Simulated assay, not measured.
Amino acid sequence: MKNKYNLLLSLMVFLFSACSTKDEVNIPSDVTNLRAEARAGSIMLRWDNPSDLNFLYVPVQFKNPLTGAIIKTNVSYLTDSLLIDDILAKDGEYTFEIYTVGEGGERGGNTLQVSCTALPRTPVVTEHAEKIDFQVSALSANASDPTEGNLANLIDGDLKTHYHTNWHEKIPFPQWIQFDLKEPVEGVKFVSWNRNGSNNANAEEVYITGSNDGENWVEIGRILPDELPTTGGAKFESKMFYKQDMTFTKIRYNAKSGVGGKAWFSIAELEWYKTWVVVVDPERN
């Protein structure tokens, strides 16, 4: 009789323990409202965490549409978003799955899913420039001063020398300096220095033209008065100038007017650079 009693008691203890263990299993709360925002080269995932924060982390899983590789990352319960970056629009649609996991490894009851395609990444445009070397024989002008109009001073690398258009007689604007190139260029930029110790003879407005025959000229850029420096010895670097689908073998620096209404202008140095751009489009390359 005693043995039967002990057996019954043991069975009751076992059943009680089993029920207690079952009652202690903590199913984590679920996240809700999973959504995806397409961005350039990325996708932002967001979801709403439960107010009780009864979970430890959220696994986010997706498959690469190109390689088929499964990618999985765990996100802390303190976070409600994840940025998936370094992807391309051309990859196609990504499908994401998320759910919650509790402290004991228990999985939440719901699995959420959302699909999205990234927006195209912006092409990377890199500008390049290479200085053009000139002999003075490649330079010409329409208004050189008889005493201060030495074109060689423009390319001698000496900021103490300068070139001056004719101030002994009035020559109508535009007053230009022409540079003949050894080979065609797609684009150009220039760097200039004002005459040292003088700021009363600068060009006030400048436009750049290009030609291949010296007769027909196309404007490819303009520098307005408020862009040019006015102090003596000041340096100016232009942006890149070009005309779509055109090349040039001759470039002119045209002064439209002189500062303060002067009928002339002067300049210490004038450097030219041939320019081009390299475009890398990750969506195509």
Rank of each mutant, 00 (worst) to 15 (best):
N3M: 07
Y5G: 00
L7E: 15
L9E: 14
S10H: 12
L11I: 14
M12R: 09
F14L: 15
T21V: 11
T21W: 13
V25N: 05
S29V: 00
D30C: 06
T32M: 05
N33Q: 06
A36V: 02
A36R: 05
A36I: 04
G41H: 01
S42L: 03
S42I: 01
S42P: 00
I43A: 01
I43Q: 02
R46K: 14
D48M: 09
S51T: 15
D52E: 12
N54Y: 11
Y57G: 01
Y57Q: 13
K63P: 00
K63W: 03
N64T: 02
P65F: 02
I70S: 12
K72E: 14
K72L: 11
T73H: 05
N74C: 12
V75A: 10
V75S: 11
S76H: 07
Y77K: 15
L78H: 11
L78W: 10
L82R: 08
L83N: 08
L83I: 11
I84L: 07
K90F: 03
D91E: 11
G92D: 04
E93P: 02
Y94K: 05
F96M: 03
I98G: 02
T100K: 02
G102I: 04
E103M: 08
E103K: 10
R107K: 12
R107G: 04
G108D: 03
N110P: 00
N110D: 11
V114M: 08
S115M: 08
S115A: 14
S115Y: 07
T117F: 08
A118I: 07
A118P: 07
L119N: 02
V124T: 13
T126G: 05
A129T: 05
E130D: 15
E130R: 15
K131F: 10
K131G: 10
I132R: 06
I132Y: 03
I132N: 00
Q135S: 15
V136Q: 12
V136A: 12
A138Y: 08
A138K: 12
L139Y: 13
A141F: 01
N142D: 12
N142Q: 09
D145K: 03
D145W: 12
G149T: 00
L151S: 04
L151F: 03
N153Y: 14
I155K: 01
D156N: 15
G157W: 12
D158R: 14
D158V: 15
H162M: 11
T165R: 04
E169V: 09
K170D: 14
P172L: 11
P174S: 13
W176A: 02
D180Y: 06
L181C: 06
K182T: 13
E186L: 11
E186W: 09
K189P: 00
F190N: 02
N194C: 10
N196A: 15
A203Y: 04
E204H: 10
E204F: 08
E205D: 13
V206S: 05
Y207H: 15
Y207K: 14
I208W: 02
D213W: 12
V218P: 07
E219I: 13
E227P: 03
E227M: 13
K235R: 15
E237F: 11
K239T: 10
Y242D: 08
Y242G: 03
T249C: 00
T249V: 06
Y253F: 13
N254Y: 01
A255E: 01
A255M: 03
S257W: 02
G258L: 01
G261F: 14
A268F: 07
E271K: 11
K274T: 11
T275R: 07
V278F: 10
V279D: 03
V279M: 00
V280W: 07
R284K: 15
R284D: 10
